[in-house]
């Protein structure tokens, strides 16, 4: 399998190289999407199925739609032909090469530590009531990270709202809903399947690869598909229920941590009998918030409304 790995690593680098140095912006973006798909393959080869799932849905899917949407909203520019000064190019090339060599040497000489945090996590997996180490780390051992990450997601959404150039508004309205006859059929077939897969992935996170991030990303992809087909429109009006769903993950996660303090005496420590149900509730609320945040990051709007069917 060394051949597969070598090929994958080589193609990754070549794709990144082409993607960054082509002047044609559209081709760069397409290459970046392919790069994302290949990253997903690399994650799978590196024993990281969780990352492969997330990358395929987010890195290759959502990010590609976002990039292409922005490219079109900017009036399909073919790229920037301004060239930076020769000196700057040389310095950047030299700096990049030195950085790459140093990172390469560091990665090959790094000693293996027996006392890594992950070793402890693997050892005490039973206490997290799940056999899936990544979920245990995300929702239990290092739940602060996940909690704060939800905050970062909301910050990004607030920033997007402040910049206030909704992607869907800059695309003409008819354009979005004008599809081929295949589109309604595709929507009817794909959207329910995507919702099902998303919900399954969130539940699967408790015992096998999957979880709130992967599931939420698949749900968001279903939402973006509906938005692309014009069934879901960005709306300028605020809606309280939607805002409540946006903060649902953060609220439920914090509440679960706070309310159980009397039982365990520490923030975000769960009593062993309650871990499984608490984890499931937290996972689903996180996924709902992640999915809606990602869809709104795509539309750039404050609200959502149904488009013409």
């Amino acid at each position: 399998m060394i051949v597969v790995d070598t090929l994958a690593a080589l193609i990754l680098v070549v794709l990144a190289w082409r993607c960054l140095l082509l002047t044609d912006l559209f081709r760069s973006i397409v290459l970046f999407i392919v790069f994302g798909l290949l990253m997903a393959l690399a994650w799978a080869r590196l024993d990281a199925p969780d990352l492969a799932l997330a990358e395929a849905a987010i890195g290759a899917g959502l990010l590609g739609v976002l990039l292409l949407g922005t490219w079109r909203a900017m009036g399909s520019p073919d790229g920037d032909h301004r060239q930076p000064g020769r000196a700057l190019q040389v310095i950047a090339a030299g700096g990049g090469m030195v950085l790459a060599v140093l990172v390469g040497i560091a990665l090959h000489q790094l000693p293996v530590s027996e006392q890594a945090a992950g070793a402890l996590a693997l050892e005490r997996l039973d206490e997290a009531a799940t056999q899936q180490p990544v979920t245990a780390v995300l929702l239990n051992f290092r739940s602060y990270d996940t909690l704060l990450e939800m905050g970062v997601l909301l910050m990004a959404l607030l920033g997007t709202w402040l910049a206030r150039v909704p992607l869907m508004e800059s695309l003409s309205g008819d354009d979005a809903s004008r599809g081929t006859e295949l589109l309604p059929v595709a929507l009817r077939v794909f959207v329910p399947v995507m919702l099902l897969v998303g919900a399954y992935l969130i539940w699967a996170g408790t015992h096998s690869p999957g979880g709130a991030f992967q599931g939420g990303a698949v749900l968001a992809a279903a939402g973006v598909l509906l938005a692309l087909a014009g069934r879901l429109r960005g709306d300028t009006g605020d809606s309280l229920p939607l805002r409540m769903l946006l903060v649902l993950g953060l609220t439920v996660f914090s509440l679960a941590g706070l309310l159980l303090i009397p039982l365990q005496g520490a923030f975000m420590a769960y009593p062993p009998t309650l871990i499984y149900p608490v984890m499931l509730i937290v996972e689903y609320s996180l996924a709902v918030s992640i999915a809606i945040t990602l869809v709104l990051l795509y539309t750039g709007s404050r609200g959502l409304r149904r488009g013409p069917a």
Binding site: V134, R142, F213
Partner: peptide, 15 residues
């Protein structure tokens, strides 16, 4: 595989 970097990268991808 160490699950801690996996969790970090997973959150990193979403961030």
């Amino acid at each position: 595989p160490d699950p801690v970097p996996h969790a970090m990268v997973l959150t990193g991808i979403v961030i």
